[in-house]
Design a protein around this nucleic acid. Sequence first.
DNA 1: TACTACATGTAAACGGTTACATGATTGC
DNA 2: GCAATCATGTAACCGTTTACATGTAGTA
Lengths: 184, 184
Amino acid sequence: MSKENKSLFALLGVLSLRPHTGYEIKKTIEEGLNHFWRIGYGQIYPNLRKLVELGWAVVRMEEQQGKPDKNIYTITETGMENLHQWLRRPIEDIPVEKNELLLKLFFGDNIPIDESITHISKFKNEKKETLADYQAIERFLTSEDCKDKNKIYALLTLRYGKRVTESIIDWCEESLSTLKKLKE
Amino acid sequence: MSKENKSLFALLGVLSLRPHTGYEIKKTIEEGLNHFWRIGYGQIYPNLRKLVELGWAVVRMEEQQGKPDKNIYTITETGMENLHQWLRRPIEDIPVEKNELLLKLFFGDNIPIDESITHISKFKNEKKETLADYQAIERFLTSEDCKDKNKIYALLTLRYGKRVTESIIDWCEESLSTLKKLKE
DNA sequence: TACTACATGTAAACGGTTACATGATTGC
DNA sequence: GCAATCATGTAACCGTTTACATGTAGTA
């Protein structure tokens, strides 16, 4: 039970939207799941083969001129059933995210306060950029241009990222003023 | 540059507070860094040996009666220097945290809305418990009983967890009402 | 009687990242 | 001439988790 290859289900989920090549899967994940799931080819291609071995997907080769041949993967009925089962299954363990900034900050006593301030400032700027990206995607998703059928769910997950990022920025500001006061 | 054993520095950081056995290190991390760093013995003991090999720590064996012998690890000057260097070094890449709830939610179109609602409700309850834990630790850290010298930094990192958890709970509530409306 | 605390470690398996290899077409 | 896009894959390496192994003392 404990060890589950969740990226396999991420691939299955993408295939449930429509057939994809491995290359396209990466793009789809980068466009829609980027703020909570990332994956490289080193995981995609071996897992795609595993899906075929399990009978959860089938491949069809398509020759192309001028471009490399395509391997198009389509989800099967068994694949769909397994996806649904997994989607319904409760989430057992929420692993703690490792946070390098907090790790460095926790031992901040060892270095001058200014160095911790620099770390937080940089972090804050990066999070502000992330927030701007989210807002742009949100604007697109809520516009008329977007005809996505799972638009609502895409928005839901995006708003998670937005809220969390906003609260991190708030925390950065609070922490920066705490440390600046401490310096005096 | 890209691949760095951060847990090694987490151990070094703990040793910078005071000498520890491997067993004690786990406890210290569980008490203070629990919300952003977790580690098992399978990582602690091999990394402790690595620290000694690098000359960043030294071991001293202490015999005990009734209890197993202790291996007490103490940070060296070289270890301290390397810790400081690492603490100052800017954070390069903030990896995206994989979120199983959001992954399941993103493909929520495949299952009845009620199942997604159940996932979020469960998640919300867990986060509420987490928040209560944080509040208890915060109360202790801000009390007079706590004589920790790096209290300020412990509080800083704790408040990160608090803020993020609060915003996640808010998101859960927002999302639950969105999905409930969608059901009608 | 059974569980928790104390205490140290190893081995296997797994998930994930990075680097490498190949190569044509399109657009700047 | 150079970068980007399209397209598929492998191999090595690394970090992490889990299971296993061992044993005493104190407490409920």
